[in-house]
Design a protein around this nucleic acid. Structure first.
Lengths: 232, 232
DNA sequence: CCAAAAGTGTTCACGTTACACCCATGT
DNA sequence: ACATGGGTGTAACGTGAACACTTTTGG
């Protein structure tokens, strides 16, 4: 590994990724946590994560872990930040690149994880004390999501393909942690012309059936290239 | 380095930081670049950067490099993102954590750098083709600065302590790459009551002398804790 | 017929934008 | 006196916030 004229510093920190996986279910924003079965922090909840291989980028590593833990791919994933404190891990120095991902919880089947680790969704407001500095990562992820969801249409990554306007509103309320005015919310969204109404409606509800909508990605790309800015 | 029951992956990538150092001078936003004196990319311009020591965080590393290159400390510095592409460096795999920093160019004395490397300010619009993937880093840094300067009062980090409103406006114009209306700009800023006017004025100018102002950090902290949001 | 959520417009307050002239100073 | 940038107010407009009732459906 050392080459002729240069001498790169040894030893080196180990490199991992940790991933905050967000889902939305029953009107609540949720995070996927793993129960640790090994020391340190055996028995504690933690973010899914693992070591970066020499032949993969950190993003590829985060995606690999995501698939391993949830079986889902093609989801939205974005780098958060890198943690480099000296004593993050009691064993040795480990640098971790944190990511967050959004996925449609409705598509998700709890697999239990390959290595028999327990994976479980936790409501964002009831996340327990986590292993390592993972609570800090969750906090930053939530802040980022809150900031981003208002000016980039990423909320749809958390809903199924077809959704009602009320479901969409509940999603925004869950993420932003605030209640929104129904009429203003609809007005604002519909004015952007990014939602295609379907003829299909809700079934089996004990009230007026809501119309389903889908997010028109193509139109969004088109408008964006013309200088349009999403904002909610 | 390997411990009893665990075996952390070897080999590991090397870890560096690279720093986009912004300054503001002569009405233009500038970036500090270093001329490389060694291979690879000998003779090319690059961002200041270096290897992370085992007993320092990446932020401490970025600050150390900043001081080494500019002799200035106590400046604003913030993590941008981490680059992990496999062939970023032709020698071996290197992960780099990118930072950006803002400093008062007026306080800065070109030192030439300890190791006789040439350090030079380059206008943001005339940054040459850089070594490695450094152009990409500069681009992200500029995007981040543009986004952030509008809702966090970080612009002052680039100006001397005392400044005129016109200087402040020129700074915002240089960062945002757009011209702003003088009266509206002043109205907006003065309404926030964050600028303390001094009695002192410009000297030696061939026109009406402008009044100096200073940014009232204490008042900003106070207002912020009461829910105030800076916005320009 | 009752419960429960869907769906729909208007008004008012406020913030943003556009815009032009006189003032102070040095040469 | 003239050239140069400093400094100031108002009117039109558009956006965001507040707010209540009718409709549809299943039980």
């Amino acid at each position: 590994m050392r080459k002729g004229s240069f001498c790169y510093p040894y030893p080196r920190p180990a490199l991992t990724t940790d991933c905050v996986i967000f889902g939305f279910d029953e009107g609540e924003l949720k995070v996927l946590l793993i129960k640790r079965t090994t020391d340190p922090f055996r028995g504690k909840w933690a973010l899914p994560g693992g070591f970066v291989n020499m032949d993969e980028t950190t993003e590829a590593c985060a995606k690999r872990i995501l698939i391993k833990e949830t079986g889902l791919k093609g989801v939205f994933i974005e780098q958060l930040f890198t943690l480099s404190d000296l004593n993050r891990d009691p064993r040795e120095r480990i640098i971790s690149v944190a990511y967050y991902a959004l996925l449609k919880i409705s598509d998700y089947v709890v697999t239990g994880g390959e290595d028999a680790a327990i994976a479980q969704w936790h409501g964002i407001s009831t996340v327990p004390k986590l292993a390592f500095d993972h609570n800090k990562i969750v906090k930053v992820a939530l802040d980022r999501l809150r900031g981003k969801v208002r000016y980039v249409p990423i909320g749809f990554e958390l809903l199924s393909e077809k959704f009602t306007l009320t479901q969409l509103q509940h999603l925004y309320e869950a993420i932003l942690g605030a209640s929104l005015d129904k009429r203003n919310f609809r007005k604002k969204f519909l004015k952007m012309k990014l939602l295609k109404p379907l003829t299909e409606k809700q079934e089996g509800v004990a009230h007026k059936a809501a119309r389903f909508h889908i997010f028109d990605k193509k139109k969004y790309a088109e408008l964006t290239s013309k200088g349009f800015n999403f904002e909610i």
